[in-house]
Write a protein that binds this DNA or RNA. Structure first.
Lengths: 78, 78
DNA sequence: CTAGTGTGTCTGAATATCAGGGCAACGTTA
DNA sequence: TAACGTTGCCCTGATATTCAGACACACTAG
């Protein structure tokens, strides 16, 4: 049983942040936990989840939209 | 509804770039075309397709991997 | 009440990135 | 051959981002 939730379709930095927050909370991790595990700053993760990580992600999403490509996030078995 | 190609699973900046290149070529666009349509610099797109747009994408992918989340790109009907 | 946890947010400094311009190499076509 | 289209790559200045560290607030447990 995969227990896969619904995939997230990513169109904006905000939706990316919301998806990340969802998966982080589902994993039972705090921002500090995840920051430590990824070697990233907690402030960065906070901003990321709120969609404040704008320019770079927006650029890529703009390219994908122009090409008619959809970005999806979903649980994976790796 | 067109035939959907196989989705791309994105694990690295290089695979993101390869997917973008695939879709751009499928759309019959040059880098310059796409740059104009997206308002981005052609050099940026060149780097992006080669996976040289590293840090930001790598950070996000690192977060997703840590959370057991997979990023996928595929054609969308919009 | 007090301590601890989680998160948002601020500052300033250090980095990373992008746009714009240009040039070389390559393949294709006339 | 020459002209053209495409792409990789270089440089520079300007901009955007990330980080560390700190603090406030809300909430919860003891």
């Amino acid at each position: 049983m995969k227990t896969q939730g619904q995939p997230f379709r990513i169109y904006t930095p905000a939706s990316l942040g919301a998806a990340i927050r969802h998966y982080r909370q589902q994993a039972g991790l705090s921002q500090a936990d995840l920051a430590e595990r990824t070697g990233l700053n907690r402030t960065y993760l906070s901003d990321l989840e709120q969609g404040h990580e704008t320019e770079q992600v927006k650029r890529i999403l703009r390219v994908l939209k122009q090409l008619g490509v959809r970005m999806t996030l979903e649980e994976a078995d790796w």
